[in-house]
């Protein structure tokens, strides 16, 4: 059984927290795909019906904002891991 000094344990905890922050941001994939999909569909709709452009863009932005939530949660978790530990 190896005994670690408190400084080493602190360093390990900090390293684990920073790694965890990096892993948390993997969640950024989800909003990326979701927002891109919404934007692509909006482009298709504007191409089909250019008159409804304003409504489509408003709806797209609202949907993208909701899709972004999960990414923002992971960002907040990453910030907490980096700056409080």
């Amino acid at each position: 059984m190896v005994e670690f000094s408190p400084a080493v344990i602190d360093t390990i905890i900090r390293a684990a927290a920073l790694l965890g922050a990096g892993f948390a941001m993997i969640a950024g994939i989800g909003p990326g795909i979701g927002q891109g999909y919404a934007a692509g569909k909006a482009v298709e709709s504007v191409a089909r019906d250019p008159e409804a452009r304003g409504n489509i863009i408003t709806t797209m932005l609202l949907g993208q904002a909701v899709a972004e939530s999960t990414g923002i949660y992971s960002l907040v978790i990453a910030i907490v891991l980096i700056f409080t530990i």
Binding site: A65, E68, S69, I72, Y73, L75, V76, I79
Partner: peptide, 16 residues
């Protein structure tokens, strides 16, 4: 919670 964290996260992320 999601309503407040969305605005907070966007602004703080840009600031960082």
């Amino acid at each position: 919670i999601s309503h407040s964290f969305r605005l907070f996260g966007n602004i703080v992320g840009g600031g960082i």
